[in-house]
Amino acid sequence: MAFAAFSTAEAPTEQAPRKKSRIALFLLLPGIAYLVLFFLTPLVSLLLTSLQAPLEFGDIGQYQYAFNWQNYVDVMTTYWPHIVRSFGYALAATVFALLFSYPLAYFIGVKARRWPLLQSLMLVLVIAPFFISFLLRTLAWKQILSDESFVITSLKALSLLGPDAHFTGTPFAVIFGLTYNFIPFMTLPLYTTLERLDLRYLEAGSDLYANPFTVFRKVTLPLSMPGIVAGTLLTFIPAAGDYVNASRDFLGGPDTQMMGNVIEANFLVLLNYPAAAALSIILMAAILVLVGIYVKRSGTEDLL
C-alpha cells in the first residue's frame, strides 16, 4: 500500500524508455561480449573440467569429459581442512582488518575533516602500498619477520618469544600477511562512508540522552554499515582465495596451506585438473552463499 502512490506516477513514464532500449542494448553489447568471452566461457570450461574422469590407460594429466561427480566428494574428503582453514583465516584477517581500519578511517573521515591537508596526506599513506607490487611487499615482510631478522632476534633476546619460536610459516604469519595486504581495501570504503557521515546525527543522539558509546553503537555504526559491508566483502572474498600469503615461498608453511595453494598445486604440480577445478567451484559457491547470507543479514540492501 505504501507504494500505491508511486505506481500511478510511474505507469506513463514506462513507455518512453522502451523506445530507447534497443540503443541501450547496442551499447551494452561490448560489455556482454566481454563477459561471455572472459567470464562465462572459462566458468563453463571450469565446470566441465571439474567433472572430468581420468583417461583410461592415459598418462598423468590426461582426462576425458564425463559426469564424474565423485571428484567433488573426493576433494571435499581430502581437502576439507584446507577449506575450513581458508575461510577461518579469511574471517580472522577480515576481523583484524576491520578492527584496525575502522578507527583509522574514522580519524581520516571524521576527525581530520577540519584539516583537509592531513586528510589527503593520510589517504595517500593508505594507498601508498599500492605503488609497490604486493608480492614484493609480502616478500619484504618475510625478510622482516624471518628467524634471523632483527625483529625476531630482539623479541627472543627480550624473552618475549621462545628460543625455538618462528614467526614465518605459522598461521599467525599468514593471517598477519592477509590482514596487512587487505587493509587498504577495508579502509577506503569505510573512509568514503564515514567521510559523508552527517555529524548532526551524532549530536542528535547525544541530545537524546545517548552516551558516546551508545551513540557509536546506535548511530555511527549502523550509518557506516555500507562501508563495513563493502570493506569486509572486498577483504573476505579475495582473502579466502588468496594463495600468496599462505604459500611456503612467502609467509606460510606446510601447515598453513589454504584452498588457493591446493588449487595451484593440483593445477600446476599434481596435474589433477578435475580436482583443482572442483575445488575452485566449491570455493566460488561457498563464497557466494556466505556473501549472500551476510548481505541479507546485515540488512544493508537499502543503504548500499
Partner: peptide
C-alpha cells in the same frame, strides 16, 4: 556536564532524524 546528561532536548534545524 555533557549533552546526554542534560535535561534538555533540541528540535534541530535540519531535523537530524536518524535515517536508519
Amino acid at each position: 556536564t555533557r549533552s546526554h546528561e542534560r535535561p534538555v532536548n533540541t528540535v534541530f534545524q535540519s531535523y537530524a532524524l536518524f535515517p536508519h
